[in-house]
Design a protein around this nucleic acid. Sequence first.
DNA 1: ACGGCGCTTCGCCGCGGAGCGAAGGACAGG
DNA 2: CCTGTCCTTCGCTCCGCGGCGAAGCGCCGT
Lengths: 233, 233
Amino acid sequence: MTSPAAFAATAVLLADPARAAMLTALLSGEALTAGELARVAGIGAPAASAHLARLAEGGLIAVQPQGRHRYHRLASEEVAAMLETLGGLTEAVSPARRWPHGEAFRTARLCYDHLAGRLGVALHAGLTGRGWITPAAGGWVATEAGEAGLAALGVDLAAARGARRFACDCMDWSERRAHLSGGLGREIAACCLRRHWITRIPAEREGDPLARRRLRVTPEGARRLGEALGIAA
Amino acid sequence: MTSPAAFAATAVLLADPARAAMLTALLSGEALTAGELARVAGIGAPAASAHLARLAEGGLIAVQPQGRHRYHRLASEEVAAMLETLGGLTEAVSPARRWPHGEAFRTARLCYDHLAGRLGVALHAGLTGRGWITPAAGGWVATEAGEAGLAALGVDLAAARGARRFACDCMDWSERRAHLSGGLGREIAACCLRRHWITRIPAEREGDPLARRRLRVTPEGARRLGEALGIAA
DNA sequence: ACGGCGCTTCGCCGCGGAGCGAAGGACAGG
DNA sequence: CCTGTCCTTCGCTCCGCGGCGAAGCGCCGT
């Protein structure tokens, strides 16, 4: 009964344009209601309901009812990483056909709950280059200098350590290099957003599934990140 | 025109059962003809031809004409890793519905061109545990002790270094841990097969796309691998 | 308690694509 | 040069799934 190709079951869920749009919107890390996701996908409520049921059944998203709303989010960090990796393959195959959001999107964006794009890659390079993190089996650990530096920036290291994985590489499809994932990646992104070093770019048009992921570095953020980690705006 | 979800284009290629069976067969690392792949997928020659054209167009496989045959192989190591990762997600979601080949398949198999399953994970653990390889940004490098040990086993280190990446982690879906990929992973697998420490298990029934990937450790192999790296059969 | 809203279920329609059979190139061997 | 083999292209049929409208269910506000 079970298909000999385990990946096919998951692939059919990703293959539909409406479901793909929903998952892309959820890559922003936000929890969205069924209605919002229906608008994002450009379909009616009944169709969206059916799609979300299938995504939940396939373990790609998690649902939490709250009053008369039902909030949906990606089921895990692995799902987010898988989506980014798969998107990167397409990019590698045909760099010619760049999607319309290309440049703006490559500068800075969210990958689920951590920073990606040129900003994410620069952050990764800054952390490793200054010796704030060092490789360990299965990922990265913070050095003494790193703990001090990150704490000075306002990163919640205790929260980062609470994650299943402290820090690991996540392939950045647009830059073709690794950026930082795991608890540390999440807390750094949260810290930057909290301090308004980075802000979300509001959607120009309603229902753009990518819009929620685009980020802008504020002047204050450029200064602080440049001083601490040598990241150029 | 371009879909906002870059991954959807690749996903549709993986979502069809016939194409999935073909890709699974190609995960053995062998180059197969269109006819062989048609039998594996259980479809006629015309359908297979159309599927293979789409897979090539999508950059998932590479084709090399040779006489009146056309040999097909996976386009790159990234494709193989992506397929294994995607398959692992399914496994994580519903560990209850294990596929029929479960146990035999989890013991030892090929992941494209390197070893996977319990054997692959044990190899990874042996290499790191004995300090033969040590983490570096973007993967692993061999230590002095590792170079000596691997050369003594008969692994072609020069060939391994010729690969785009010397050694990196590839997620093992069945064990939920990393096994070794990259040039070193390939050369270790090649060495074990060449020396008949490991042999391919012949397919019981024609057209099983998984059959080509199953491996068995020979008594000689168990002895040598146990001595060198503490790998239990 | 009642109306409103969000979401789901049901029934039906339409389209895309996956399959085969038949016919048309391309290549090796005699 | 002809024959057999391997693969592709073409024309066609058919099933599956994604879409909507209508109706049903559950939770909130007043």
